[in-house]
Design a binder for these strands. Structure first.
Lengths: 117, 117
DNA sequence: CGTCAAAGTTCTGATTTGGAACTTAAGGCA
DNA sequence: TGCCTTAAGTTCCAAATCAGAACTTTGACG
């Protein structure tokens, strides 16, 4: 079974997963909530390949979770920002964050600041 | 980058995703909250292949999210139940459910009952 | 004995991913 | 002018993962 087949599942959790149920998509969304908005930022921050970033951004825009808009006309440059629908996804990421902080302590520092977003 | 490399990321969301950041794992967890506990139930309910179910249950048990225990000695038969750590994952699934119900209405009935878990 | 059930494991071919290089369209600078 | 840089992707191939079906094991049932 392909995961996109879940999009008409009776269960709302399954439908949500058909859209955002993979790690890179969710990491990109996390980045959006942290204020990142550009292609290279997502690629650098998540560690996903450019190929994956491209694909996932496309999906998120199609789904109406992100809005793709030009912030420069010449040369054409785009940024991705959360729509209202996207913003409403916040509780899920907060739940992930809370659970991770409580149950998955870091063993060693791996990268980035130790800020607490 | 492999997704298991996220397990020591500074971000708790990333660490959580390194463990449960794939659709089948999250669907299996949903099933646990719905009261399912056996291998074949997970396979039937999620539509994942037995191979995947086997792999994901192994991970979840290793992570201390599920507890594997025999409910029959002869023949040996096992069931999987949420640990306390697993139960505390509920808010994340509830957030997914709420978001899905609000933003992803079903277009056609695909399977199962229309209950509202 | 033959059949069934549960819980997996194994096999093979298809799909997805990872990693790196390449493209396009300017801008800066020497 | 020519060369370097940035941003946002796309393309390529090898490697990893997945889907689907069949097979295994352990015992119960009739």
């Amino acid at each position: 079974m392909k995961w996109t087949d879940l999009d008409d599942n009776w269960c709302p959790v399954a439908r949500t997963l058909s859209l955002v149920g993979d790690r890179w998509t969710l990491l990109i969304l996390r980045d959006c909530f942290l204020g990142l908005s550009r292609f290279d930022q997502f690629a650098d921050s998540t560690g996903a390949t450019r190929h994956i970033v491209s694909d996932r951004l496309k999906r998120l825009v199609e789904a109406g979770i992100l809005d793709k808009r030009a912030y420069s006309e010449r040369p054409k440059r785009y940024e991705y920002v959360l729509t209202e629908k996207g913003h409403e996804f916040a509780p899920a990421l907060v739940a992930f964050k809370d659970w991770g902080k409580k149950h998955l302590p870091v063993r060693r520092a791996s990268q980035g600041a130790s800020a607490d977003p």
